[in-house]
Amino acid sequence: MALVRRAAAQIAEDQPSGDLVDGQERWVADLASADASIRRRAAHDLSQMPDAVPMLCAHLANERSLSVRSIILTGLIVNKSPAVVTGLLPFLGSEDANLRNGAIEALQHMPDEVAPHVVSMLADEDSDVRIFAVNVLAALPHPMVPEWLLQVVLHDPHVNVCAAAQDALVEAGEPDVIPALEALADRFPGVAFIQFAVDAAIRRIRGG
């Protein structure tokens, strides 16, 4: 028969015995390994240690392997803290789309830790960073999100930032956002896609 039986416990015994040696110094050294699987293991173990957060965030910026990045971000999500948010926020301005999107997704898992930073995120002088901040809010499970997005729609000077916020705001679909949407259309009278998007959103909220 082609089927053979092997116990899971036996598979574990087949692993190299040095595999489970622990220790922070070893993990830090392993983070520089040329072998991505060793870096993954080191990143996973280091992510259990709160004082390793700055090091892991710094490593993220240089890490080329998507699988190592991914396990660092997962570890940071699991051990979310104000320090993690502080370490991830600079990546909203990264030119590396994978890293930036990974940071956005990770921040969306930390509503309470992100909340104190929202106002400053939305006040960044770079409109691209403000768009990515709105992207964070779009899936942030926090009761203040509609209000934050409303303020962007009402006051942000950049049309693309407003469009991103309008998009996210409409999903919640409260009729009381309609005056803000009308005001947005008035603020950008010559921008056809805003006029179209606002009309469509209002129609949708009213159920028309």
Binding site: P111, D112, P141, H142, P143, V145, P146, E171, A172, E174
Partner: peptide, 13 residues
Amino acid sequence: RNYFAAVRFEASG
């Protein structure tokens, strides 16, 4: 509307 807001914005999920 109230229910959807609870599902959408509840931090605990």
